[in-house]
């Protein structure tokens, strides 16, 4: 499923996929209301692509490629952290 990335010197990148959430109101329309794209249970998981290390290879992973499966997405502070 994930596509292998050709080895190169550039550091692979990814990011959110699809339209960015509206963040600020246009200037001069009163107080700026910060619209925080809060995650909601029962709502769609925002799609993204991300480079990954998997089974000895560097691959590009897209969340929506996993539709049809249960996915656990875990964030953590950093490699070599302790817990």
């Amino acid at each position: 499923m994930p596509e292998e990335i050709k080895a190169g010197c550039a550091r692979p990148t990814g990011g959110p996929v699809g339209e960015a959430p509206e963040r600020t109101a246009p200037a001069g329309t009163g107080p700026v209301k910060e619209e925080k794209g809060m995650i909601k249970v029962g709502g769609k998981a925002p799609d993204f692509t991300a480079p990954a290390y998997l089974g000895g290879k560097f691959v590009q992973v897209k969340l929506s490629d996993y539709l049809g499966k249960w996915v656990v997405l875990c964030f953590y502070p950093g490699d070599f952290t302790f817990v």
Partner: peptide, 19 residues
């Protein structure tokens, strides 16, 4: 500059069921 320990359960329809 780091992520917090967040864990999301996403169902086969791409819906977040819990975090």
């Amino acid at each position: 500059g780091v992520e917090m320990r967040g864990r999301f359960i996403i169902d086969p329809d791409g819906v977040i069921q819990g975090y």
